[in-house]
């Protein structure tokens, strides 16, 4: 099955950003049992996050973040990679499995069971923060100047 890089980046990012436990819980609820083996068992490590001086200039090392990664292979030979923020092995394994399944003919079912709920949860989370933030936006009014 042909999968575009853009699509794959989209679902991998969605799972990486998800709240702890959600990827694994949604996948297990979907009951999509598949035979697979680990090419790389879930592994916790760090990534050095970089920034840029002045926001746009020279790259510098800001500090590390924890990341869990996992790689699995389905019986059909499809390989899936999972990278999630934090220390959460079940989510990394689930993310790898979803990544693999999304490249097979079960993509639609997986997307409906796992990715769409994650997408709407994230949208709701962001909208809630954005609307609270918007309520703290300052409305200036100019005082009438004496000389006018």
């Amino acid at each position: 099955m042909d999968v575009s890089v853009t699509e794959r980046k989209d679902w991998m990012g969605l799972m990486a950003r998800a709240v702890e436990g959600r990827v694994a819980a949604l996948l297990s609820k979907a009951g999509l049992a598949v035979e697979r083996r680990f090419l790389r068992a879930p592994e916790i490590g760090s990534v050095m996050v970089r920034g840029r001086a002045g926001g746009t200039g020279a790259a510098f090392n800001l500090g590390e973040m924890t990341v869990t990664r996992c790689t699995i292979k389905l019986d059909c030979g499809t390989v899936g990679h999972g990278h999630v923020q934090g220390r959460r092995k079940p989510d990394a394994e689930a993310a790898a499995l979803v990544d693999a399944l999304m490249q097979t003919d079960r993509a639609e079912a997986v997307s409906a069971a796992v990715l769409e709920p994650l997408r709407s949860e994230e949208a709701a989370r962001r909208a809630a923060r954005a609307s609270k933030s918007a309520a703290t936006k300052v409305d200036f009014f100019t005082m009438v100047r004496g000389e006018d």
Binding site: G45, V49, R50
Partner: peptide, 14 residues
């Protein structure tokens, strides 16, 4: 104690 997987792209604060 953590293995380092690599470095990120510089974050886009804009």
């Amino acid at each position: 104690t953590l293995p380092r997987f690599g470095a990120s792209e510089p974050i886009d604060t804009a």
